[in-house]
Simulated assay, not measured.
Amino acid sequence: MATYMRSYRKKNAQKPVEKPVEQTLILQAEPEPEAPMKKVRNLPTSDSAKRIAKLFSRRLTTGWSDREHTAHRKLGVILPETMDLLDEYYAFQRSQPRGYHRRDLSTFLNNFQAEVDRANEWKKDSTTTPNQQRNDSNIRV
């Protein structure tokens, strides 16, 4: 029996033990087709809309919300002189430590005429000399 076992061990020792090979199927993911870029709605296209977008540091490639777009359309044609005045007014107000100006585009558009009036008052006050202001304050109506 001992000789039989020795010969058995020798035969089996020479043969490498075959392990079952797991065959894994490697699936290569197909590249997804590039999705077509969505068309951005409500981009500022008119000159006044582009200037207002720049006034509020908005990219020209960023679409406006539906409310902003509707508010801008309701304004109608905005004259370049009005936009120049608003640019000057906002530049001045932003340079002040506690400047009074709108910080939201939607609010600005909904209160556009009030902003124009405020800019006109600022322009009128900034163009008068201190002597004129002093004389005007002494006049009683």
Rank of each mutant, 00 (worst) to 15 (best):
T127E: 14
A71W: 07
S46V: 11
T62F: 02
N135D: 11
Y8L: 15
T70I: 11
R94D: 14
S48F: 15
M37K: 15
Q23M: 02
E88M: 10
A91F: 03
M1K: 06
Y89K: 02
K10P: 06
F108R: 03
N138D: 06
D66F: 04
N111I: 09
L105A: 01
K124A: 01
A119C: 02
R94E: 15
D84C: 05
K38W: 10
I78M: 13
E115D: 15
L85M: 08
Q23E: 07
R51Q: 14
A13Q: 14
L109C: 06
N135T: 05
R51W: 06
M1S: 00
N12W: 14
S126K: 10
N120M: 07
T107V: 13
L43I: 10
F112N: 09
L75M: 04
Y90V: 07
P20S: 06
V77L: 09
N110Q: 04
V21I: 08
K54D: 09
H69M: 15
K124R: 09
G76R: 02
L25K: 07
L109E: 05
S46A: 13
D136Y: 02
I78C: 13
Y4D: 09
K39H: 10
Y8Q: 10
L27E: 15
L85I: 02
P44N: 08
K124E: 08
Y89G: 06
A35C: 09
A29P: 00
Q96E: 00
M37S: 12
R73E: 14
R103F: 02
A91Y: 07
L75Q: 02
T129I: 09
P20H: 12
K39P: 00
P33Y: 10
E18Q: 07
L27I: 14
K38F: 12
F108L: 03
I52L: 07
Y89H: 06
I78S: 07
G76H: 00
P16H: 08
E121F: 03
T82E: 03
M37T: 10
Q113S: 11
S126C: 09
S137T: 08
R140H: 12
